[in-house]
Structures are given as structure tokens and as C-alpha cells.
């Protein structure tokens, strides 16, 4: 499990959002990926090819593994999106549905 260092500046625990309906608390400057990892979520999606579980690898927008559905939009690189209060994040299963 990832843990937060206690000795950090006072932007901690400011942002509340949900992952798969579960309430999560994050720091204001967290990326969605970092906040998800901090809350214990390691598996972000299952692969679109074989369905095997996948999670973040590079944290810098290069690997495209950390894809999550954010506020209804699928395949967002979670490490490149900053958390926002009330954000609705969902882990993904295989190929995301796009047709209404």
C-alpha cells in the first residue's frame, strides 16, 4: 500500500471525490492516478486485448496504462488529470462503451 508522508504542506485531504462509488479523499495537487493509488486502488482497468488487469506504470503520460473513466468520459490518462471535488471516477472493464 502506498502511504502519505505525514510531513507535507497543508493542501492535504482537501478534495473529496468517488472511485467506483466509494468516497476518497485526496490532496489538492494530486493527479487522479496518485489519489487512486493512495486510496488503495491498484487495478485501474482490464486490458482491451486479453482482459488482464492493468494499473499505472510511468505516472508521466507515456504508458497509457492508467486509463480511467472520469465524469463519464472513458480512457482518460488519470496521471495527467488533477483531482476535483465531486469528480466521478470509474475503473474500466475492457473496451469502453461509447454508443448511447
Amino acid at each position: 500500500m502506498f502511504r502519505r508522508l505525514r510531513d507535507r504542506t497543508a493542501t492535504s485531504g482537501d478534495v473529496a471525490f468517488t472511485i467506483d462509488g466509494k468516497l476518497v479523499s485526496a490532496d489538492a495537487e494530486d493527479s487522479v492516478a496518485a489519489a487512486a493509488l493512495a486510496s488503495g486502488v491498484l487495478r485501474f482497468r482490464t486490458s482491451t486485448v486479453s482482459g488482464e488487469p492493468r494499473g499505472p506504470y510511468c505516472m508521466m503520460g507515456v504508458c497509457f496504462e492508467c486509463l480511467l473513466t472520469i465524469d463519464g468520459r472513458p480512457n482518460q490518462q488519470a496521471c495527467m488529470v488533477k483531482v476535483r471535488p465531486g469528480m466521478r471516477v470509474e475503473t474500466q472493464s475492457g473496451k469502453p462503451s461509447v454508443a448511447p
Partner: peptide, 21 residues
């Protein structure tokens, strides 16, 4: 495009979905 869940099962002359999605 990126892979998406199947929605189109017939080719349209200028648009088709592959079996990879």
C-alpha cells in the same frame, strides 16, 4: 481510433469498426 466496445457490425463505405474494436 482507440478500441471501443462493438457498436457497428456492418461496414459503411467510409467507416467501419474492426474486430479489435
Amino acid at each position: 481510433t482507440e478500441r471501443v466496445a462493438p457498436f457497428l457490425h456492418h461496414p459503411i463505405l467510409t467507416l467501419r469498426q474492426t474486430d479489435e474494436g
